[in-house]
Design a protein around this nucleic acid. Structure first.
Lengths: 338, 338
DNA sequence: ACTCCTGTCGACATCGTTGTCAGCTTGGTA
DNA sequence: TACCAAGCTGACAACGATGTCGACAGGAGT
C-alpha cells in the first residue's frame, strides 16, 4: 500500500469523498482534477492531498456520460494474429493514441454475424468512431449509428451498401503488376491462387490478374484459376490442381500471405518449381532461396490513413464519403524471375 | 435510412424517448431491453416497435456507471505489430470475447511512462481487469487499482515490486535447451546475443545460457555475450563483435525474434557461417536453407492463459498470486546442427 | 363483501461526473 | 460609507441507465 493511503478494498473513492476530506465543494474538486482556473493555490493543494491520500481516480464512465464523447475508437478486423492485420492495427493505434483516444479491438474471424455483434457492442459503448475491415457484404445495420454521429471508416475492403469513407490498397493494380512481371519473364501459362471470391480483395486481385493476362494476349483457362478458403488443406489441393493435369502452369500468382506461405511449404513436393509472385510481403521473404518476389501492400499505411480519416471526421469534416487508394509495390527478389 | 426510422442526425434516442413513444414507463423499457420478466407480451411488443422505429441502442456508458462492472479488459503490450505480441493478443481477445468482455488495446513501446499512462487510462475507464506485458520495473502505481478491485495479470515478464498473477515462458529453461543443443553439436565457443539486460526475459535467457555453458564445463568470455537494443544497427554491430576478433564464436544463440531476424539478414556478409539457434519461432523458419532451429514459445498460450487467470479472478478467486510458467520447445531444423 | 395474493407497471432515487448559476469575499473606487 | 467588479466557491440539475418500492388491477378464497 502506498504511504498515507486510506483506501478500503473494493470501494473506489469518488469526488464526493475527496470533497469531504478536503472540506471543499464537489465542483471545486472537479475544477482541480480538470485543471480549470479559478481555484486558489491553497485550496487546490488541499484537494490534491486528499486525492493522493484516498487514491482517487476519476471515473471516466461517468465523465463520458456527462460529456457525450468517449475518446475511444473501435477497430474491427479479421484476425489480430495475422501479420498483415497486426501491422495495420499498429497504425491505427498510433494515430488513435496521438489523438488522445483509447482503442477497442475485436476480431470478426471473417464472420459477418460476429462483426455485426462487435460493431454494435462498440457503438453501445458509444465509441466516437469505428475502423472496420468488413467481413460481411451488407453494412446497412450501421446506418443508424452513422446517422447518430458515429464516424465509420472501412479499410482493406470497401463498404457494402452504405456510404462511408474507405481506404484500400490498389489490389487490381498490384495483381496486374505482379502478373505483368511474370509475363515479362516469358511465362504464358500463369496460375492465380486466390482467397474466397466473395472477399473483395480476392475478387479485385483476380480482376487485375485477368486484365494483365488479357493485355498480354494470353488466354486464361478455367484450370488456371482457383479461388477458395485459405486453410492449408484447401490451398494444397488447389495447388495440386494448378500444377497437375495435362497443362500445368509454369508460374503462380498467390493471392495473399496465407496462401503464399502454404504454397511455399508445398513447393518442394512438386514435380517442378513454378515461378512465384506472392501478394503481401513476408518477413523472411528476402532470405529464402530464391528470394520471394512479392507485391507488397503497406498495412501500416492503411491503418494510419484510415485512422487519420476517422479523426478528420471527428474534427467536423462533413464532406461526401472519401475513398483513398494506396499503391502497392512490386519487389523482385528472385522467385518470379525464372 | 432504414424503413420507418425517425432518427434525427446527431441525437441518439434514450430510453425516455422510447418510453414516451410506447406510452409506458421508463422502467418498463429497461425491462424489455434487458429481457426481465414481468412485462405482458403486448406491452413488450409496443416497446420493441418503438425501439426499432427510433433506432434506439442502449448507452452502455450509463449502464456501466450504474452497474459497476464494465465488461471490458485492457491489454497493454510493447508493440501490436510484433508477430509474437500480436499472436499473444489474439489469445487474450479470444478468451475475453468468450467471457463477454470487450478488449482495450494499447502499446507501451517499451516506455514505462507510456505504460503507466495507458494503464491508468484503462483504470479510469474502469476496466474490470488488465493484462500487462510490463515495460517498467516498478508497478506500485497499480497498487491502488488492485486494492480497488481491478484484477491484474502480468504476462511474458513478471510483475516488479507488486504481488500479482503472472504467466511467463520458461525463458531460462529454453535458453538452456537451445545452448545445450549447440553444445551437443560440438560447439565450444558459443555466443549469446540478447536484448537489453534490464528486460526480464533477456536476463533470464542469458542466465539459462550461462547455466548450460557452465554445466558443459565451457567458459564464457565477455566477448561471447552482447546485450543491447534490438534496432538493426545495434544488432549488426554486436554480431560483428561476436564473430570478429581473434576468437570468433562458432555458434550463436539469439535472444528474440527481432535479433534472430537481423542476424539472419547479416549472415551472408559474415566471413563464415556460425551455427544458429534463435529464441522465438519465425513463420518461414522451416523454409530457409538451412532451416532455422529455434526455441519456440507459445505466444497464443501465454495470452490465453493470462486472460483465463484474469477471468478466474473476476469470478471471485481471491487466492494468493499465482505464477504460471509455460514450457518452451526446441525445434531443430538445421541451422543449429552444423 | 372482504381480504389476500399475484402479476404489471411506473415514480423516484441513484451511479460519479460536469455545466450553470448564484452567493460570498475581497479590494478598489467614488 | 457605499458600491461595484473580480475572483472563488458550492448547491443543484443533468447525463442515461438500473434498483427499490409502492400502486393498482384482477382473481381466488373465505
Amino acid at each position: 500500500m502506498l504511504p498515507g493511503m486510506t483506501t478500503q478494498y473494493g470501494i473506489r473513492p469518488t469526488m464526493k469523498d475527496v470533497a469531504a476530506r478536503a472540506r471543499v465543494g464537489l465542483k471545486t474538486v472537479s475544477r482541480v482534477v480538470n485543471d480549470e482556473p479559478g481555484v486558489t493555490p491553497e485550496t487546490a493543494e488541499r484537494v490534491r492531498s486528499a486525492i493522493t491520500e484516498l487514491g482517487f481516480r476519476r471515473n471516466d464512465s461517468a465523465r463520458m456520460l456527462r460529456k457525450g464523447r468517449t475518446a475511444s475508437v473501435g477497430l474491427l478486423l479479421e484476425d489480430l494474429g495475422d501479420p498483415f492485420y497486426s501491422v495495420l492495427s499498429r497504425g491505427v493505434e498510433e494515430v488513435a493514441r496521438s489523438n488522445g483516444s483509447l482503442l477497442f479491438t475485436g476480431a470478426s474471424a471473417e464472420d459477418p454475424q460476429r462483426e455485426r455483434e462487435l460493431a454494435l457492442a462498440f457503438c453501445a459503448r458509444r465509441v466516437d468512431g469505428l475502423v472496420v475491415v468488413p467481413a460481411g457484404d451488407d453494412h446497412r445495420y450501421l446506418l443508424p449509428e452513422l446517422a447518430a454521429g458515429t464516424a465509420v471508416v472501412f479499410v482493406d475492403r470497401p463498404a457494402e451498401r452504405i456510404g462511408a469513407d474507405s481506404v484500400l490498397s490498389d489490389n487490381a493494380g498490384g495483381a496486374r503488376e505482379g502478373t505483368g512481371h511474370l509475363v515479362r519473364q516469358g511465362h504464358r501459362r500463369i496460375g492465380f491462387l486466390g482467397d474466397l471470391p466473395q472477399i473483395h480483395t480476392a475478387a479485385e486481385r483476380l480482376r487485375g490478374f485477368r486484365e494483365a493476362m488479357a493485355a498480354a494476349g494470353l488466354p486464361v483457362a478455367p484450370g488456371q484459376v482457383s479461388m477458395g478458403p485459405t486453410d492449408p488443406a484447401s490451398v494444397a489441393a488447389a495447388l495440386d490442381r494448378l500444377t497437375g493435369g495435362p497443362r500445368p502452369v509454369t508460374a503462380l500468382l498467390t493471392g495473399n500471405n496465407r496462401i503464399t506461405l502454404e504454397v511455399l511449404r508445398r513447393l518442394p513436393a512438386l514435380p517442378y518449381r513454378p515461378a512465384l509472385v506472392g501478394f503481401d510481403d513476408l518477413e523472411l521473404a528476402e532470405l529464402l532461396v530464391p528470394g520471394l518476389t512479392v507485391v507488397a501492400q503497406d498495412p501500416a499505411g492503411l491503418g494510419r490513413t484510415a485512422a487519420e480519416l476517422l479523426f478528420r471526421r471527428l474534427d467536423g469534416d462533413a464532406g461526401p464519403p472519401r475513398s483513398v487508394r494506396l499503391p502497392t509495390r512490386l519487389i523482385p527478389r528472385g522467385s518470379g524471375e525464372t
